[in-house]
């Protein structure tokens, strides 16, 4: 990293203005700091590696072999693309992919817009902020299966609150989970309720940590609140928002509990997500080869998505990296 840095104009100029011994000291210092960096990160990386490498590699291996789950363990044989052939050839998989992508795009967009707005409101609260944060965290910290059951109860066709509200405002008795479109929308509402707080809290922490002087400068300029937001707050918040989006994409792509509890993937397979499909393949059908192939394909697609996202937003995510 230090060599690349030396090639860029800012460091060159700064180098030129410094006396030679300072430069050498700085280089030594830099190497020392780099070593320190690895000392600092190694414990965390070791923990992650110890737990994750084996399962990830195991899944990769399974996705490329003929897998038999037996009482005596997993039997893997042969190197094959058959699992991927099965996956890519499946109408259900193609549908699940489309559904998961649509779901991710819609919920993440709504959640990020809404979450940022909530964070902005919270930032202005003084005394109430702690309470509001506690409140916001409740949906997020509800056990996922429970929040799905809560919505199941709300959407219940016989005694559900949603049905009572719809009929009270003259909308009759819509079949909430029974048609493809409304089931998808109902699921998105439940997701947005649960996950918007996640985004709001990440963005709020980012907001709170913004340097205060930029606002003062804006006020001197005479900008109004709206202008300040668009011209100053939002650009400064972009790395934080980008981070929230990144992790929301990861979570949304893993959508599992809501369809599993609310609709079991139905009606038909209208709300079958990639994770539900993979789970069914592995644990219901006990075909771990195709199941692992679904999981690996999903992971690969998300990684590609994230890399593309980082490409587009790299300045945002890495802003302030070197200063």
């Amino acid at each position: 990293m230090s060599t690349d840095r030396a090639a860029t104009p800012p460091s060159l100029t700064s180098r030129r203005t410094l006396p030679p011994e300072t430069v050498r000291k700085k280089d030594v210092n830099r190497r020392r700091m780099a070593r320190l960096g690895w000392y600092f990160s190694t414990p965390a990386l070791l923990v992650v590696a110890a737990v994750t490498i084996f399962p990830v590699v195991f899944s990769l291996v399974m996705s490329f072999s003929n897998v038999q789950v037996l009482g005596s363990g997993f039997q893997l044989s042969g190197l094959t693309l058959g699992n991927f052939h099965t996956v890519f050839g499946s109408v259900k998989w193609r549908y699940a992919l489309g559904f998961t992508v649509l779901y991710t795009v819609v919920t993440v967009t709504v959640e990020v817009v809404l979450g940022t707005m909530i964070a902005l409101v919270l930032e202005h609260l003084r005394a109430l902020r702690g309470w509001m944060m506690a409140l916001l965290l409740i949906p997020w910290s509800l056990i996922t299966v429970i929040s799905a059951q809560l919505w199941n109860y709300i959407y219940d066709p016989t005694y559900g609150a949603a049905d009572a509200i719809f009929s009270a405002v003259g909308l009759g008795h819509p079949v909430i989970l029974g048609s493809n479109a409304s089931a998808v929308i109902a699921m998105m509402v439940a997701d947005i309720w649960k996950t918007t707080p996640f985004v709001a809290i990440i963005v709020l922490a980012g907001l709170v940590m913004l340097p205060g002087d930029v606002y003062e400068a804006a006020e001197v300029d005479g900008s109004n609140g709206w202008q300040t937001f668009w011209r100053i707050t939002l650009p400064l918040l972009r790395p934080t928002i980008a981070l929230a989006v990144l992790f929301r994409i990861l979570q949304a792509f893993g959508l599992f509990d809501l369809p599993f509890v609310l609709t079991q993937g139905g009606p038909g397979y209208a709300t079958t997500s990639l994770a539900v499909l993979g789970y069914q393949a592995m644990f219901t059908n006990l075909s771990f080869g195709p199941g692992a192939a679904v999981a690996v394909t999903t992971a690969a697609l998300v990684v590609i998505g994230c890399i593309l996202f980082l490409r587009v937003f790299r300045a945002q995510v890495n802003e302030g990296e070197e200063s």
């Binding site: 066709p157 016989t158 079949v175 989970l177 029974g178």
Partner: peptide, 13 residues
């Protein structure tokens, strides 16, 4: 109309 969402629970209710 909502039969396509009915498990034991909903029909029992």
């Amino acid at each position: 109309k909502a039969e396509s969402t009915y498990q034991e629970l909903q029909s029992m209710n």
